[in-house]
Design a protein around this nucleic acid. Structure first.
Lengths: 329, 329
DNA sequence: ATGAAAGCGCTAACAT
DNA sequence: ATGTTAGCGCTTTCAT
């Protein structure tokens, strides 16, 4: 069992003071003789020395840690987001502490505190709550918080998100162009998350200008989705379902395919998120692809810039989405 | 801007020494008067004090940090694995530092060092290399390493993985029962990862006892998968493709569906992994579902037990897989 | 039942 | 060109 080698061991071995080693480590060779430099380099590799990050952080107030909280890590969205963030932050020498709020608002609050306890330099959060008050304490701690995917009210932090409004409206126009007479939006409860509301209202806005009916199904644990879809099939109007996120789209498709409903003849279906499956299921599912990894990249970049310059404004960065037109509407 | 409150602030305010506060924090109220206890509790909540983890770790050698490295965080497998690990570790008061090796063996090595720099108490790794020598240094550092998904040679660390052999053999038996005369295994390069080899050899073993032909297609960046599949379609024998992981299965299905190949009439298809899509694509894809989240749970549990008792043997924990029988073979 | 003091591994004035 | 010294915020031994 090898004991951990510290800066003192290196100093002793190299016959200089800890200060000099520290200077070497931090690249402060103002006027360090190249002999000592070489000797230190030599000793470090000999002893296999690596500085202790905790000690560095404690003293220098720089942890090089960024906390990231996603609302559900098993969601495809999270995977791509984390990939994107990690690419940028890793490049810049930061580590991510990733945490999973597991769709629990209590857990999210707990995790935020835990991140702060770890002295993270910044936090990237996909928030589970829409009221800014729940996140005010982070502002008080004076640590940069960047929201991703979802906004809060009022929007007191910077945000990186998809252009939900544009993408949704474009898609609805496609639906209307195909002479649909009724759109059924299937969404998780609107009130919880701003993004859901934006998507719904974008639809509503477009639909209402045309002679088209609109229904909203808010899905909770109690909802019998099978039953809701049956209702859709009974409408006399030509009907399209709009799933407001990938999970909903997935669940609806499972039912439609299982029940051997003809798409788009018996019913049209589209919505957010275009995952691998969309091209392969049924006749090909027309859907909206969020550029999630790009959102991650932008988030990482923004975070880095806040770290450098804390006076930045609360700007919102919008990343466009892509309409994947296939044959389900 | 609020300055960070430290244990000294609390001590001052509560009119006791830092020692007493520390005792309180760590639950060492051997014979602390309940008055002081109450007073400390009071002051802590008043000042909103939270101990600094870095300082605690530095002094006590307990970081409560577990490093996790996955080979590609955008893979569905990683998501579920992380979910599973996180559930167990979070419950036990540990934080995960999750890192993405992004399918790079250099990056993986670098990340391992970075984790050690962060004083993680243990590491859970989905290894990208099969030679144990690359990971020997972790043993030297005396920090518990748990492998997940993939083994190394020799297997000098504990491992949690799917029962690849049993699942693969069961599936191949189903294929043989259906009178297939040729099996084409499509895999990423066998030599790189032990698991791939296990899967292939399990197939080979079963197939060779029967009157059935066997092909192996090792897919690299240069491979033209379309072309390989065309070849499969031209065989005179009744042929089934076995995709050795979810990514391969996905890519093959994309081609088969795009080309409107009739499944399973023109060709049979099955393999690892059963993700959401498998039930929805084509006639329903028969495939092998790894219980990935369970593997994560087991990994977390094992890690906790190593943390408690470092003398544990290098046991391998096998988690069974589930055959999802549908209609693609 | 509580404190004083030393020190974890590092950094950064302030020396020289 | 390099060293001395004082801490960062905490835990723990040894006192009392």
């Amino acid at each position: 069992m090898k004991k951990n080698v510290t800066i003192s061991d290196v100093a002793k071995q190299a016959e200089v003071s800890k200060t000099t080693i520290s200077r070497y480590l931090n690249g402060h060779f103002g006027n360090m003789s190249s002999e000592t430099k070489d000797r230190i380099e030599q000793v470090i590799s000999e002893l296999n020395y690596r500085p202790n990050r905790q000690a560095q952080a404690l003293k220098s107030k720089r942890s090089f840690l960024i906390g990231v909280i996603v609302s559900d890590i098993s969601n495809m969205y999270s995977s791509l987001l984390l990939k994107g963030i990690g690419e940028v932050l890793g490049e810049a020498g930061y580590q991510m502490i990733i945490m999973d709020a597991a769709n629990s608002i209590e857990k999210e609050q707990d995790l935020l505190h835990k991140l702060i306890d770890q002295s993270v330099e910044g936090i990237i959060l996909q928030p589970s709550l829409r009221e800014a008050s729940h996140y005010q304490f982070i502002k008080d701690e004076n640590i940069p918080l960047l929201l991703v995917d979802r906004g809060i009210e009022p929007l007191i932090f910077p945000l990186v998100t998809t252009d939900n409004e544009t993408a949704t409206k474009k898609m609805i126009k496609q639906i209307l162009d195909k002479q649909y007479e009724r759109v059924v939006v299937v969404s998780e409860p609107l009130a919880d998350i701003v993004t859901r509301e934006i998507r719904y209202h974008s639809i509503k806005e477009v639909v209402e200008t045309k002679n088209c009916l609109l229904n909203l199904v808010e899905v909770t644990k109690e909802t019998n989705l099978n039953h809701e879809i049956e209702k859709c099939l009974k409408y006399h109007e030509k009907t399209a379902i709009f799933a407001s996120n990938g999970k909903m789209l997935m669940e609806i498709l499972t039912i439609l395919i299982t029940e051997k409903i003809e798409l788009p003849d018996e019913i049209g279906i589209t919505g957010f998120d275009d995952w691998n499956l969309s091209a392969l299921v049924g006749p090909g599912i027309t859907s909206i692809e969020q550029q999630t990894q790009a959102i991650g990249n932008v988030s990482g970049t923004q975070m880095l810039s806040y770290l450098e310059d804390e006076t930045k404004e609360n700007e919102t960065k919008i990343v466009s989405a892509i309409i994947r037109t296939r044959n389900s509407i």
